[in-house]
């Protein structure tokens, strides 16, 4: 290949393809190293350390940052995920329904809740719902509100994921189930949906990671000391101590959960790749 290329090309061009490739790679490395050096030289490391990495301040945060803040973050996330999953399932089935208005309604829901910032949904749940239904209290206090707000947001995404999963199950599966005498609903529940969930486990776990981060929006609902999660907890401490170390610690706590989760997703994806018939 290279031989024919060089013989075909006029000699005066100078560099061969191979030489050009290694030159290009050398330039890329050089730019990278230069950027790292520039960053290391220009950043004020003393001030950074002073502001973000005060060891004794970080130590003070334990164990509350785990037992209270991280626990609440996980709780908010999981409750939102469960609500989103159930609601998303309903919307996905509506989207696939043979009844026109259901499909239409599900489509509108998905477009609206995917298109709005999660922050607006939180404010909506915190303000508009109590206004619209006076006297009714969302059960579970803040926890209930967060579960509802996160659930409303994630349901829109999960509905699309679940719908795609259901449609990815081969048509023959439904035909086989129907020919054995399953009604459409029974076939959906015992044959199609279990297979769909295998397909969509990785994207659903991804959604969990996204929700984990979105749970920080709870601070717009106004929370008591006991209801604080990682972001609010870190910010509060940062303002009382006039130092940003708590923010860094809170950030590390997020990564403590999200990085292993992403790792699990990658594992599942490669496994699913192998399992494809």
């Amino acid at each position: 290949m290279t031989d024919t290329d060089t013989t075909l090309q006029p000699k005066k061009k100078g560099l061969t393809r191979r030489q050009k490739r290694s030159l290009s790679r050398g330039v890329q490395y050089a730019v990278f190293v230069a950027a790292v050096i520039a960053f290391a030289v220009t950043a004020d490391w003393d001030r950074l350390q002073n502001q973000f990495a005060q060891a004794d301040l970080a130590r003070q945060m334990f164990p509350d940052v785990i037992t209270l803040a991280l626990k609440n973050t996980v709780l908010y996330t999981l409750s939102g995920f469960v609500v989103g999953l159930v609601l998303g399932m309903v919307i996905a089935l509506m989207r696939l329904s043979s009844v026109g208005p259901y499909r239409w309604l599900a489509g509108v829901y998905i477009e609206i809740f995917r298109g709005l910032p999660a922050l607006l949904i939180f404010i909506f749940v915190g303000v508009a719902v109590p206004l619209a239904f006076p006297g009714t209290e969302i059960p579970g206090g803040t926890y209930g509100k967060v579960a509802l707000a996160l659930g409303l947001v994630s349901a829109a995404y999960m509905a699309e994921t679940i719908r795609a999963g259901i449609q990815a199950v081969p048509k023959g599966q439904m035909e086989a189930a129907r020919s054995l005498g399953f009604s459409p609903a029974k076939a959906m529940v015992s044959i199609i949906v279990p297979q769909a969930f295998r397909i969509i486990l990785p994207p659903l776990t991804n959604e969990l990671v996204l929700l984990f981060k979105d749970s920080s929006l709870v601070l717009f609902l106004g929370v008591t000391l006991e209801e604080r999660e990682l972001s609010k907890f870190g910010r509060d401490l940062a303002s009382t101590t006039a130092n940003s170390t708590p923010i860094l610690v809170a950030g590390l706590c997020y990564l403590l959960v999200t990085i292993p989760l992403s790792f699990v997703v990658r594992r599942m994806e490669s496994k699913a790749q192998e399992a494809i018939r």
Partner: peptide, 10 residues
Amino acid sequence: MVFQQFNLFP
């Protein structure tokens, strides 16, 4: 009914 593609539930 028996199908060309078997259609067992995987």
